[in-house]
Design a binder for these strands. Structure first.
Lengths: 221, 221
DNA sequence: CAATTTTTTTAGTCATGCCTAAATATCTAT
DNA sequence: ATAGATATTTAGGCATGACTAAAAAAATTG
């Protein structure tokens, strides 16, 4: 009876995430991997989403979000990111459980709740991971962002987001004193292995590997 | 896989509500009415709850909460009422949608979330309707409360809770300037029809009928 | 106290969302 | 171009939580 079940919402968000990374159509297997389900389950769900005109679906050739699906996904993303701001700014959560909790909160469907939450939070434009929060019309700001890996030596920037949200990665960053919003400058790049030496907050020297640098996005200043 | 599905939680809360009103065992039909489902669905669910040892269930003779079920229900009530405080104190909700939204929020199962929410709200002891919030061990304060109807003339008190949570009743109270926490004194009781004249906040004279007075609980001061 | 009414339970169905196993389509490499 | 590998879909099942209709137990009442 709801426009969208909570499961359908999760699929839609997964499809959005995958299709905004690479532009082409999204494969069944990619969705299954993202969602932690099996391909057969995905096939089932794609049928349902296609019937609700959220996706265009040609069998064996993957899916695209329709305009309607895109709007809906942005609405879910908006809720997710607003709740993340709440968890961090108000409840003082550390990284760990935030995405999971927000995954559940985002499924609540009460426009007034989200409107009041947005107001209460002061209409934030970015979530704690630096990802933009769509407004109620689905518009959001994009800011230039560079993988840390691609920053030249001496360039300064602000840590804007992480690509990998696993708990272990976030814990690692915590331990290294790397957090969203931290100012940093690249001191040296080691050509041999692609690792970097950073100065964070003008006070801490930090070494990160190429793998880590690839998962950190920086907004150049 | 979860200890309790969200549906089971709703049943448990309904059983708690019904059994804390009248002490005896709760009937299948009463639960069905409370939940807006059919008796057959309730019978199904009672079987499941009995297997999880949340209730003791003798066929055809209604149910009682077990110690475990009682604790669990109090945990749900705790979450429900904390979220209600959040909705009113922080998001500035008016009465209307609060119970529905809290019904959904209460099903989230993240102990840390509730702990942090509790802290953020300043460990409130009562929800916006004046109902006590159990602590993490299930203990809660009970305060003496009297139906407004039973207050003698000249007695002062604080509006503590309403028995009827329908939107129309709450709107009516709003219009009359009656709200939880308001100080009031009974000026006059009309024997003929049981209606009362109140002085609210030391500044407004308000007339209420016997029916309305029966649905307002006052904490004498 | 026996017949009728009410309440509760059982039996059978349906939709959702997941799964495994099998079938089928597409892709890749020789 | 076709065999083998890979990806996707179909088919059939299972659990949850609801429903209707029918059966059975309990309560009521004349």
């Amino acid at each position: 009876m709801p426009l969208l079940t909570s499961s359908e919402g999760k699929y839609l968000k997964a499809i959005y995430t995958l299709s905004s990374a690479g532009k082409e159509s999204v494969s069944t297997n990619a969705i299954a991997a993202q969602m932690g389900t099996k391909a057969a389950s995905v096939s089932d769900m794609l049928g349902k989403l296609a019937e609700k005109e959220m996706i265009s679906y040609r069998k064996y050739y993957g899916v695209h979000l329709t305009e309607k699906g895109h709007k809906t996904a942005l609405g879910i993303l908006r809720k997710h990111r607003l709740w993340e701001v709440f968890l961090v700014d108000k409840l003082r959560f550390q990284w760990e459980e935030i995405p999971q909790i927000a995954d559940e909160l985002e499924q609540l469907d009460h426009p007034l709740l989200i409107q009041k939450l947005d107001e209460y939070l002061g209409y934030p434009k970015f979530d704690p991971y630096g990802d933009p929060i769509p407004d109620e019309f689905g518009d959001f700001q994009t800011k230039a962002r560079v993988p840390l890996q691609d920053m030249p030596v001496d360039m300064t920037g602000k840590i804007a987001a992480v690509k990998d949200n696993t708990a272990s990665f976030l814990r690692y960053l915590d331990k290294m004193g790397i957090y969203i919003g931290a100012r940093m400058v690249v001191l040296e790049k080691v050509e041999f292995d692609g690792s970097l030496e950073l100065m964070v907050d003008n006070q801490r020297k930090v070494f990160v590997s190429r793998e880590v640098a690839a998962n950190i996005l920086v907004q150049p200043l």
